[in-house]
């Protein structure tokens, strides 16, 4: 018999990681900018929020957006760096960024060094401490807001500009799109989501330590993102659910967690690069066809035939 509390814990974690993955999907999926250091942004948000609430006794409700803004600002920095670099070198720069951030967490006392920060307070609202199911609802509300933003972005000028840049940078530039600006936006928005997710994670676990945000966590987020499917707002949720649930359902897998991620990534990228519901995947085409009717299906398929 699965206890309700256990179920709530799992669902909360899925919500938090889905949020961080949603951010990664903006950077990597929509804008096509490789980011292999997303866990660092989660960590920046988590530590910002933890330090503000424990050392300065600032309310969670202020610390939460500040965590996002902190990650956002550092995201702008990485975005500026990204302008100068081509894909694979941007990728290794973000790996390096992840290592440096984690090293700073470990080496400076503000971040609690190797012990991390403990006794991070749980948020309260109208005198009620948000625990278990209340906290889960909070996480889901934040996730819903993020998804709403994502939905708005997909159909906005911003989303179109990002996609145009991903397809062909030079063409986008000649169409009058400020490529540099949008690349920085892609990074900083992706980082903002990660920062908020970090804050939610810190106040959920109530203790955090540098190793919670290492490079292997970035790989986990990457697996969620690619497994769910790039350029789809539902992809991150599906990806996060599978990656977190699988080791819980098949207990023996828990011990082979990293091996599982690795195999997932290799097989997916080789045989199913669009993931489960990513743009252009089988499910994505079916869903689009269902909502748009027969005619556009044919158009879509023609387009796909042309692409391949």
């Amino acid at each position: 018999m699965i206890s309700v509390l256990y179920l709530i814990t799992i669902l909360t974690l899925i919500g938090i990681y889905a949020l961080a993955t949603l951010g990664l999907n903006i950077t990597m999926g929509y804008a096509g900018q490789v980011n292999l250091g997303q866990a660092a942004f989660v960590g920046i948000g988590a530590f910002t929020s933890a330090i503000l609430t424990t050392s300065y006794h600032i309310s969670f409700w202020i610390a939460l957006p500040l965590a996002g803004i902190m990650a956002f600002l550092i995201g702008i920095l990485i975005g500026i760096v990204s302008i100068r670099l081509k894909q694979d070198f941007l990728a290794i720069t973000t790996i390096g960024f992840n290592f440096i951030v984690v090293a700073i967490f470990l080496y400076y006392d503000v971040f609690g060094g190797s012990f991390g920060i403990i006794n991070i307070p749980r948020p309260t609202l109208f005198g009620i401490t948000l625990k278990s199911s209340y906290y889960m609802i909070l996480v889901f509300i934040v996730l819903a807001i993020a998804m709403f933003f994502n939905y708005w972005m997909e159909n906005s000028w911003l989303g179109m500009a990002l996609r145009a840049i991903k397809e062909d940078e030079d063409a986008a530039e000649s169409m009058g799109i400020d490529v540099k600006k949008y690349k920085i936006i892609a990074f900083s928005f992706g980082a903002f989501f990660a920062g908020v997710a970090g804050s939610l994670l810190a106040h959920f676990k109530t203790y955090i330590v540098w190793s919670d945000f290492g490079f292997s966590v970035s790989i986990m987020l990457l697996t969620m993102c690619i497994l769910g499917g790039l350029e789809s707002m539902y992809g991150p949720i599906i990806g996060a659910s599978i990656v977190i649930l699988l080791p819980e359902i098949f207990r023996p897998l828990a011990e082979y967690r990293l091996i599982t991620y690795a195999i997932f990534l290799i097989v997916l990228l080789k045989y199913m690069p669009q993931g489960i519901i990513g743009r252009g995947s089988y499910l994505d085409r079916k869903i689009r066809a269902f909502f748009k009717g027969e005619e556009s299906t044919r158009k879509e398929e023609d387009q796909n035939a042309e692409d391949s």
Binding site: V34, L36, K86, Q87, D88, A91, I92, S216, I219, L222, I226, Y256, L258, I259, Y261, A262, I263, L265, I266, L269, K270, P273
Partner: peptide, 28 residues
């Protein structure tokens, strides 16, 4: 097995495959 068939994919795809392979080799 992994690099030659993936030569046409964008560089970050092969990089991620390579990182995954490395994780796989050390965990194994």
């Amino acid at each position: 097995v992994f690099y030659i068939p993936a030569l046409d994919s964008p560089p970050h795809i092969t990089l991620i495959i390579s990182i995954a392979l490395f994780t796989l080799l050390s965990e194994l």
